[in-house]
Every structure is written in C-alpha cells, then in structure tokens.
Design a protein around this nucleic acid. Structure first.
Length: 697
RNA sequence: GCCACCGUAGCUCAGUGGUAGAGCGCAUCCUUGGUAAGGAUGAGGUCACGGGUUCAAAUCCCGUCGGCGGCUCCA
C-alpha cells in the first residue's frame, strides 16, 4: 500500500499499485489532462509508470498558454519530438539508420547514419516537418514495452542495426536487466525505437517544433569511427513559446561579437594574414588598451613587476619546460636556421629525420612561444633569491601562438595568436593560499567593474585514475587544498571537477557563456609544482638551505581576444563610457554652428575624452541616427541656442529623448569623472539628477 | 583534422548555363535643417583563387584558400 508524498507535503495512500496519471486524476481532471510525465523520487518518468512503493511524486504538466514551461515538460516534449522526427525521416528515407536521439536544454537532436552517397540535406526539412505534423496530428500514444535482455537482443539482432545493438550492449554494461521500446502507437504495427524513455503520453502533446540545423558527429564521439548526421530541432508546449524562442535566437545573433565587431570596426581577420590571426582595428584597440591600463593599475596595487619578453625562444627552452615535444601538434612548426636546413637537405635528411633531430636536441631551432612561463622562469632564475624576496610576481601582456585545429577557429574566441594578461608568481609553499586569494580578488574586481556576474567558478582537480599528471601526490594534495580554501573565500558558489586540472597542477577557472550558449573559459589560476622542478628553481630559506619555490600561473582575463569577444556580447557593443572607442560625438545643427562645435570638441579632447565631431551636411536627425548606430554613449547636439549659453544639448545612449541642455564645462567635468572612476561616478546623475536610466538601457 | 553548407560592390544580400543586380555606405552637387535615415547625380565587381566540362560558366565538375554550423581537440 504505497503512500505518495506530493510537493506540498500532502500524502495519499493507495491499495496495490498506482500511477502518476491516476494520482493526477484523483486531484483533478484538469491536472490529469495536462499531465505529461512525473518525477518519482526525483527520477523523470512516464505518466503511466507504475508506483508500487512509497514515493515522493511531482506531476509534470504542460499547460498551453503559460509563458514558461516546467523544464521537465520541455525535456519530455523534446525527447518525444526527437522520436517523431526520426519516424518522419525514416518514412522519407527508409535507409536511414538511427543511432541516438536525446533531448537537450536547448532542444534535441538525433544522430542518424545515412548512405555516404546520399546524405540528408536541409532542403528536406520542409518535407520532414510536414510528415512530423501528420504524426503529431494523429495523436498516437507513446507505448512502452519491455523485453528481457535476451529477447531484446534477439529482436535487435534480427533487425540488424549495429547502432541499436551497440546501444543495448551499453545499457547491459550499465546494469540494465531489460530493454525497453517506445512505439508511437501500437507495438508491431507502428514505428518504434529502442529507448529508455520517458516520453509524453502521446504525439499530440508536442505543441510546437522546428527543425533547426544539420551537422555532423562521430559515433561515440570518436573521430575514427562512423560519421553520423546530426539533425537539430527544438520543441515547445505551444506555438507562442516557439515564436518567442526564435525571436530570442534572432536577438542573440545580433549580439554576436563577429557581427558587432565588424559593424563597430573593432577587429578584422584577414584571409591574407592567416586563419585565426586577429587584427585589432583602431576602435577595438582602444578597448583593449583601456582594459590593459585597468588591469595594469590593479597589478601595481598588488605589487606585481612588469616584464617584457620576446615572441620566440630556443627549442631547448621548451624541451626543458616540456612543451616541446609533448604539445608539438598544437604549436607552429619551429624556425630553423636556413643554412642548417640547406646543409641537412644536401645530406639527404628527410622531414621525419628532421623532426626527430629537433625532438632529441640534435639540432636547435626557435619556437613561437606557446606560453609565457618559460621566459618568466628564466627571469626568475637570474641571480639568487632569498625567502625575503618572495613572492615575486612577474606580469606581462604576453602574446602566444598555438596551432589550433582549423575547424575550431572562430571569431575572437578561438584564435591562433593571442595575448594573455599573464603573470607568474614565485612563492613559498606557505604563501600559495594567500597568493591564490590575491588572484581571486583581482578577478572579482575585474568582473565587478565590468558588471559580469554570470560566470561559473570551477576548481579543476586531478583524476586519481589518470597517469597524465606529474609530480608528488603530496604536493598535489596541498595544492588542491589551497585551491579549495581560496575558492571558499570567493563568497560565490563554485564547483569541483575531477580530471580538469592541468598536467602540472590544480587550477581555478572562470567560465562565461557567450550569446549562443557556448561556454568559454576565460580567467584561470593554476598552481604549479612541476616547472620549478624542471627548471631547478630555488630560493634560500630562513634556514640557509636551498628550497624549491611554487609557481602560480594566472590570467584573470585569459586572453585579451577571447575576453573582449565575450565582452562585446556581454555589452552587445554598447560599452560603458570608459571603454567606448568613441565616448562622445559632437553634432553641429548646421554649418553655422561648426565653430562652436569645434570649441566643444576641443574642450572634451582637453579633458582626455575620446570625442569625435560630425560636421557633415546631413540633417541633425541623420547625424543622431548614425551616432546611435555606432553605439556612442553620449551625443552632444549644438546649435546657436547652445552656443549663446555655452551649453550642450545632451543625449545618452539607451534614452530615446534629448535630456536637455547643460553647461559645457559642467558636462565635460562630470564625464571626465565618470571615465576616470570607470563608471563609479555617473555623469548622468551629476548633470541631470532627475533623470533615471531605464532598466533596459 | 573530419562532415555538411556557403563565398557576387566597402557592408547586407538577390541572381541556377546566354551582356552583372538591389538597399545601405562612398563621391559630387542641391539643401543650412533643433533631436533616430532630406533630395539629385555618379563612381564602384576578372562573381574567393586555380584547373576542367561547354559554342558559351558567377551558375556544372575537381582542387586550394577562407567563412559558418557541428564533431573531435584546447598546456
């Protein structure tokens, strides 16, 4: 006699067994009508799943008309929609072999194997969607049935799909004692799929859907295995939600840093220069310079020492550090003395021989640096260090080059040459925790100043089962403990992840999502016991003996390229005044006011404000629009009226109306304040105390 | 690196085997206008690059480079 506890803590008891559907019916017919699934003791299930023991139950409902649906409802609908899509595709393409079709937070996909000479094209989406609509309209029930492992395997063997047989094998390895199928309708009569479920009660529960894109994937994610076609789609409870979602995607697209970057002239990637090699155009360079100034200021406060190091170094440096040859495949090929190459060629040296000689150190060459640490280490290694000198903090905006896979390169977020806001701290073991906390403080100041609050903190630990990690396990334990303690001081939630450590030590990463939901690792703090060892670094301790320092690698932005790419999306191109390439645009009403406009312009420039002037013979309406399109935070309209009172008429980005006139000097001073305080002081408040910034500005 | 799609004017894009198109931007002229696009005229393209098929290729085929969406990677 199971007792069911509902989310409101009320309980109900039943004779024999029951189902979520029956319980919903018992509460109200309305609830039963929109129940599409359940969570029984936290596990997502069908609405008709049998309950025979005491359980906590939540009914998952899909009500038409609600703005947002229960995430569980969307999971159910999307997974079921993946089935409907698979059925539709197999009707149109009977040769298609199904592999795996899960629901995602952002939709669903189905991996399908097509014949190599006849791939699926997105031109067929319309036909597939039509077929899906028919299936949904037929409102056929999702019917679950179960076979024993033996019977199930027999059935799959007779059907002969190696992918489904493989899925079943995996279920078996994971401890399943039976296999389940879901038929859309009646088993043996209608289409069915090996599937663990759960599903909505019937195809009619899928209110709205759309096929989105076609991509490729590998079977088991293995590049050497079969290539599959992945069809992505999205589904919702009702049409309005779908429409909203598509609109949101449109909006997100407009925030894409690649589009905004082009429009605002922030950066350019040139075919002729090379894939993944970013050219910072003047407007983008301003943003980068401002950020670098900002961070350099913070570093001075934290007593860092600025250094500069070259872009290349001898191969031997990287043999010692271990970067070469272990990460050879992600480096640009080494540079070798042309005379030496010539001689080797004459001696009949093959490319393979050459690679081996470079690896073994038989010939020397230079490498474009993949990391800054070896150079910084060699700076530390100059001369002796007392424990009294530690910690030594060496900082550099260091540009590094990595041979990223061509298919991975994208916009500013994944490039082959990038500048890290890098620093290496050399300290004693006792100082590690305090230094990590210092790094975290820095990250906090940066994220806070920029208003970036939506990030994840991940403490990356070693995976006990893996042998890829170097160094003494006792050191690892200490370093991991230091990372945990330091992360605990952050005051925000953080997660631990096994196997996410660098090979030389644990780390703390900061992860931010871009507009299309892709996560990007930005800042990172890494504890390293390995490189000091490899380079035989030492300091003289209190006891007069040589000791090994610990190194901390840290880059709060990660790379200027990736960080600014994400920042462009964060601000949708509307940078706060202190970062905006053009801070003020002065617009003369007509030629008659050009002289006064010049005066306004010069007054601003004198205050170190980045101001431009528009003296074109457009009408004021057009000038305003042009300045607004470039997301310039402040527009000053000046005409004879303003000239007379030594005023400027002010417009602020995000506010549709003219704010009114204010004295030129008052405005220039207030804006200068806002800029030097990086937004802590507000020019709007200073000049127009009665005006409030709208929420969505 | 792999798979699919794509590459036409500075930008966004139309053009599917028969003389290269639009809007925006740009230039010149008119307009001197008080708060989100004033008007006219004009310039601008070896249709990414290389090869092939064809009487004829932006268009069809192959290769290269680049972009995009995934997969796989990311010290």
């Amino acid at each position: 006699m199971p007792t069911i506890t509902l989310p409101d803590s009320s309980t109900r008891s039943f004779e024999g067994t029951t189902t979520p559907y029956e319980i919903a019916q018992g509460i109200s017919e309305g609830l039963a009508a929109c129940a599409i699934g359940a969570r029984i003791n936290g596990e997502l299930t069908d609405v008709h799943t049998t309950i025979s023991e005491d359980a906590e139950l939540k009914i998952v409902t899909a009500r038409k008309g609600e703005k947002e649906s229960d995430p569980d409802a969307l999971l159910l609908i999307r997974h079921s929609c993946a089935h409907v899509m698979a059925e539709a595709i197999q009707r149109i393409r009977p040769e298609a072999k199904l592999v795996y079709g899960p629901a995602l937070d952002s939709g669903f996909y189905y991996d399908i194997a097509f014949q190599e000479d006849n791939p699926l094209s997105s031109d067929e989406f319309e036909a597939i969607e039509q077929e899906m609509k028919t299936i949904i309209k037929e409102d056929r029930p999702f019917t679950r049935y179960e076979l024993s492992l033996e019977e199930g395997m027999k059935k799959l063997d007779s059907e002969g799909s190696k992918y489904k047989i493989d899925n079943a094998q995996r279920a078996k390895e994971n401890g399943s004692t039976s296999l389940t199928w879901y038929a859309t309708g009646t088993p043996n009569e209608h289409w069915e799929d090996l599937c663990r479920g759960p599903h909505v009660p019937s195809t009619g529960n899928i209110g709205a859907f759309k096929l989105q894109t076609i991509a490729s994937s590998y079977w088991h994610g293995d590049a050497d295995s079969d290539r599959l076609t992945r069809v992505y789609g999205i589904a919702f409870v009702h049409k309005k939600q779908l429409k909203n979602h598509l609109k949101l995607l449109e909006e997100a697209k407009k925030r894409d840093h690649r589009i905004i970057g082009k429009k605002l002239g922030l950066f350019h990637i040139d075919e002729m220069v090379g894939q993944g090699l970013l050219l910072w155009t003047p407007n983008g360079a301003v943003i980068r310079q401002e950020l670098q100034n900002f961070i350099a200021e913070q570093l001075r406060r934290q007593q860092y020492s600025q250094v500069f190091t070259p872009h290349i170094g001898k191969l031997d440096l990287y043999r010692t550090s271990g970067h070469y040859p272990y990460y050879q495949e992600s480096q640009y090929p080494p540079l070798i003395d042309p005379d030496q190459l010539h001689t080797l060629a004459q001696e009949g040296c093959s490319c393979g021989d050459l690679a081996n000689m470079m690896k073994d150190g038989d010939i020397e060459g230079y490498l474009l640096k993949p990391m800054n640490c070896p150079h910084h280490i060699r700076i530390f290694a100059q001369g002796q260090h007392s424990y009294r000198d530690l910690p030594i903090r060496l900082a550099e905006f260091g540009t590094v080059y990595r041979w990223e896979q061509s298919g991975e390169i994208s916009g500013m977020t994944r490039v082959r040459g990038f500048t890290q806001d890098d620093a290496h701290l050399f300290c004693t073991e006792e100082q590690v925790e305090r230094e990590i906390i210092g790094c975290l403080e820095l990250v906090n100041i940066i994220f806070d100043t920029l208003g970036m609050h939506d990030f994840t903190v991940r403490v990356g630990l070693r995976d006990a089962d893996s042998d890829k990690y170097v160094g003494d396990p006792a050191n690892w334990d200490k370093a991991e403990a230091a990372c945990r303690t330091a992360a605990g001081t952050l005051g925000i939630p953080w997660i631990e992840e096994q196997g996410e450590a660098a090979f030389y030590g644990p780390k703390i990463d900061f992860i931010v999502n871009d507009v299309i939901g892709r996560p990007w690792q930005l800042g990172t703090i890494q504890v390293d016991y390995n490189l000091p060892e490899r380079f035989d670094l030492s300091y003289v301790g209190k006891d007069g003996n040589q000791h090994r320092p610990v190194m901390i690698h840290r880059a709060p932005f990660g790379s200027m390229e990736r960080f600014i790419g994400v920042l462009i999306e964060h601000f949708a191109g509307a940078f706060p005044t202190w970062l905006a390439p053009d801070q003020v645009r002065v617009l003369a009403i007509s030629e008659k006011s050009n002289d006064y406009a010049d005066k306004v312009h010069l007054t601003l420039l004198d205050k170190d404000i980045r101001a431009t002037i528009d003296k074109s013979d457009e009408r004021i309406q057009a000038k305003i629009r042009n300045a607004a399109e470039m997301k310039i935070p402040w527009i000053l309209v000046v005409g004879p009226r303003d000239a007379q009172g030594n005023n400027v008429s002010v417009r602020m980005r995000g506010i549709m109306d003219d704010l009114g006139a204010v004295c030129l000097d008052t405005f220039a001073e207030a804006l200068s304040q806002e800029i030097t305080t990086r937004g802590k002081s507000s020019a709007l408040n200073a000049c127009f105390p009665d005006i409030k910034i709208p929420e969505d500005a």
